[in-house]
Amino acid sequence: MSKLITKTARLIIREFNLDDIQAVYDFNADERVNRYTGDAGVVQSLADAERIIRDIWLTEYLQFGYARWAVVLKETNSVIGFCGFKNDYRINETDIGYRFAPEHWGKGYATEANQACIEYAKDHLDLDYIVGDVVEENLASINVLLKLGMTFNKKFQDMGFTVIRYDMYLKSKS
């Protein structure tokens, strides 16, 4: 049984477990999902999906108390993607992110799930500040970050992309 993080009207947000290997493979399989992520092609097999769950997410839950979390559609009890936080050593910041199978795009799940993650972080995690990096052409993700209340921080080049960084303070600066 995976640790429950939070629930919304339509979603359950919980930690991933090894029973989620097929779902992780499935929501990464469509090349459109990873088009702007910088990690296209990382999940090409069930073994790749298992490695990500075991070696990254399960490890980060223990190390930081958070990592990407499974987004489960209440209606079907199926994992449709991920949301939540990543301690990104490359930028020395905590990144908010999300990824969903294309059939679940445009339904507000990314905003709904990540708003719940932000509320959870304010109440349960020792996080003061988060960033959201998005490729300039990914207008849908830019829209999600703005709906979450994040503000423009800077624009830069990374892995051949023009990236826009948005940020947010979770606790008041005092």
Rank of each mutant, 00 (worst) to 15 (best):
T94L: 11
T162N: 12
I12Y: 13
N153S: 14
R14W: 07
E50T: 03
Y89N: 03
A67W: 04
V134D: 09
F156E: 13
T6G: 03
A9T: 09
D20M: 00
R35K: 09
F156R: 08
R99D: 04
Y89G: 02
Y109S: 05
R32L: 14
A110M: 04
D88T: 09
L148V: 02
N114C: 12
M1Q: 07
F100C: 00
R68K: 14
T76C: 07
F85E: 09
G97S: 07
A47V: 07
V71A: 07
L127T: 03
A110H: 04
G81W: 09
W57A: 00
A49V: 07
K173R: 15
V135C: 08
W69H: 10
A47F: 04
I56K: 14
D126N: 15
E103V: 11
S2C: 06
D26V: 09
S174W: 06
S78G: 03
I13E: 01
V33K: 01
Y98C: 09
N153Q: 13
D95F: 05
W105V: 09
W105M: 12
N153T: 00
Y36F: 14
S141M: 10
Q44R: 09
Q115R: 13
E93M: 05
T59V: 13
V163H: 06
M1K: 15
N138T: 01
G84F: 12
I12Q: 10
D48T: 07
T8N: 08
L127C: 09
Y120G: 03
Y61A: 10
R10Y: 09
L18E: 14
M159K: 11
E119A: 15
I80C: 10
S141K: 05
R90A: 03
V131M: 05
S141L: 02
A113Y: 00
V42N: 14
K173N: 08
L139Y: 08
V42L: 11
S45M: 00
E119D: 15
Q44H: 04
K122P: 03
R10K: 10
E136T: 05
D20C: 13
I80A: 07
G160D: 06
L127I: 15
S174P: 10
A29Y: 12
A23S: 15
A23V: 02
V33R: 04
G97N: 11
E60L: 03
I21S: 05
V163L: 11
L58W: 04
L58M: 12
I96T: 06
D55W: 03
I56W: 06
Q63P: 01
T59W: 02
I21V: 15
N92I: 10
T162W: 05
D26P: 08
A116V: 09
L127Q: 00
D123C: 12
V71Q: 02
N153I: 06
W105T: 07
I164E: 11
T8V: 04
A47I: 08
E103L: 10
N17M: 04
I12G: 07
S2L: 03
C117E: 02
R68N: 10
N87K: 13
L127P: 00
M150S: 04
F16I: 08
A116G: 05
G97H: 07
R90W: 06
Y25P: 07
S78K: 15
F64T: 02
R14F: 08
F161W: 01
D88P: 00
K155R: 15
L11N: 10
E31P: 13
Q115E: 12
Q157F: 01
E112S: 05
I5P: 06
I52M: 14
Y129S: 04
A40V: 12
R51C: 14
